[in-house]
Simulated scan of single mutants.
Amino acid sequence: MAGLDPDWVDDFVLAVNELATNSVEHGPGSGRLRVWTAPGLLTVEVSDHGRMDVPFPGVVPPSPTGQRGRGLWLASEFSDVLEVWSDPAGTVIRARAR
């Protein structure tokens, strides 16, 4: 896929699954998934109408004793770049794999 290592693609698929699941579970219950490619680059964007006010989403590791809170962190770990922004229209999360 897009000239990427198949093992890396498997991890990236897990990251995308986490992002989509978060949109449904923690957001408004639905979202939009966009995917585009360029040679050696795969970009995925999940957006919804929910708002997120988590400081540094995906950067801080989850608590080892917590039951939840690993989705964005996993997505960050399994992506080369993870961008997150919220504005009055909603939240957008974009992940890239090279």
Rank of each mutant, 00 (worst) to 15 (best):
1 M>V: 09
2 A>D: 03
3 G>K: 03
4 L>I: 15
4 L>Q: 08
7 D>N: 14
10 D>E: 14
10 D>Y: 06
11 D>G: 11
11 D>R: 13
12 F>G: 05
13 V>M: 13
15 A>E: 02
16 V>D: 00
17 N>K: 15
19 L>K: 00
20 A>F: 14
20 A>E: 06
21 T>L: 13
21 T>R: 15
22 N>D: 09
23 S>V: 08
24 V>S: 11
24 V>I: 15
25 E>W: 05
25 E>N: 13
25 E>D: 03
25 E>I: 08
26 H>Y: 12
28 P>G: 07
28 P>H: 03
28 P>A: 06
30 S>I: 09
30 S>P: 00
31 G>N: 05
32 R>S: 12
32 R>W: 09
35 V>K: 02
35 V>R: 14
36 W>R: 11
38 A>L: 09
38 A>F: 04
38 A>I: 01
39 P>C: 00
40 G>N: 08
40 G>F: 01
41 L>A: 10
42 L>V: 13
42 L>P: 01
43 T>N: 01
44 V>A: 06
45 E>R: 11
45 E>L: 02
46 V>E: 07
46 V>T: 04
48 D>F: 10
48 D>V: 04
48 D>R: 03
49 H>S: 15
49 H>V: 11
51 R>V: 12
51 R>K: 09
52 M>W: 15
52 M>A: 14
53 D>Y: 03
54 V>P: 07
54 V>T: 14
55 P>Y: 12
57 P>L: 12
57 P>M: 13
58 G>A: 02
58 G>Y: 07
58 G>P: 04
58 G>T: 08
59 V>Q: 14
60 V>T: 15
66 G>E: 12
68 R>C: 06
68 R>G: 03
69 G>K: 13
70 R>K: 09
70 R>D: 05
71 G>W: 08
73 W>F: 14
74 L>P: 01
75 A>W: 04
76 S>T: 14
76 S>H: 13
77 E>V: 09
77 E>C: 12
78 F>S: 04
78 F>C: 07
79 S>Y: 08
80 D>H: 15
80 D>N: 13
81 V>T: 13
83 E>N: 06
84 V>I: 04
85 W>K: 14
85 W>R: 14
85 W>S: 11
86 S>A: 09
87 D>P: 02
87 D>W: 07
87 D>G: 04
89 A>H: 03
90 G>F: 08
91 T>A: 04
91 T>W: 03
93 I>E: 02
93 I>K: 05
94 R>S: 00
95 A>V: 01
95 A>H: 02
96 R>W: 10
97 A>K: 14
97 A>T: 07
97 A>E: 10
98 R>S: 15
98 R>H: 15
